[in-house]
């Protein structure tokens, strides 16, 4: 599904964020990537979404080498990869329904289809009755679920969660983690980047440890151990 082959990412003049990284992620896998600040986790996410280009090496997603992907092909890649962030990135002047619908509108989906799909996704994330609310009227956990719903709207093969529980309390963090696991059970590959020990330990899936731009540990059914 996802292959990082000998990836190096150097930010000018000479900051190596990722060093000779090789990592394979299979379809439908749930992988937690952990490490200290500056280990290169976020850079890895950016390389996967083509927000950054590797200095050398290859990134292959779904059999397609995205290392030298053209600018006009990036949107297509991003529709196959859903991403949620710590800060939710919802639009405060739009309702929950409109926030999720926006992701479809900007990809040219017809209004009738949007009216069908959005309620379905809201149901998956457990917010069927909150469609008319605004983000600021929801709790942090609910907002993150909306962000996940938006990330799922194109039925991506991969869902990346970059510190999704960073702004949440323990209870909400657990809900989010459970939701990610549920999404993974539906067949979506999930990559979780997290500092949260409790979250990672609760999942008991594959854990990849990064340090200084390299993978230093890669264990199945592992715990948070830096």
């Amino acid at each position: 599904m996802i292959h990082f082959k000998g990836i190096n990412k150097i930010y000018p003049p000479d900051t190596a964020a990722v060093k000779d990284l090789t990592l394979h992620i299979k379809p439908k896998e749930f992988v937690s990537i952990i490490g200290r600040s500056g280990a290169g986790k976020s850079t890895l996410v950016k390389l996967l979404t083509a927000e950054e280009r590797s200095t050398n090496g290859k990134v292959v997603v779904g059999g397609v080498d995205i290392t030298s992907i053209r600018q006009n092909q990036i949107p297509s890649l991003r529709r196959q990869i859903g991403v949620v962030y710590q800060d939710f990135r919802l639009l405060r002047n739009k309702t929950i329904f409109e926030n999720i619908a926006f992701a479809l509108q900007v990809c040219g989906v017809a209004p009738a289809r949007i009216r069908d799909v959005v309620p379905q996704v809201l149901k998956i994330v457990g917010l069927p009755d909150k469609a008319d609310r605004y983000p600021q009227q929801l709790s942090g956990g609910e907002q993150q679920r909306v962000a996940i719903a938006r990330a799922l709207i194109h039925r991506p093969k991969v869902l990346i969660a970059d510190e999704p529980t960073g702004n949440l309390d323990e209870i909400n963090a657990k809900e989010i983690t459970d939701l990610l696991l549920k999404i993974n059970e539906f067949g979506t590959t999930v990559i979780l980047v997290s500092h949260d020990r409790h979250v990672v330990d609760g999942i008991k899936k594959r854990v990849v440890v990064m340090e200084d731009g390299k993978v230093v540990s890669d264990k199945r059914h592992a715990m948070y151990d830096l």
Partner: peptide
């Protein structure tokens, strides 16, 4: 900028942005 960021995130075509 917020809307543009979301559009890039969800894979809106560049021309539509």
């Amino acid at each position: 900028r917020d809307a543009v960021r979301v559009m890039r995130l969800v894979g809106a075509p560049n021309w539509l942005i």
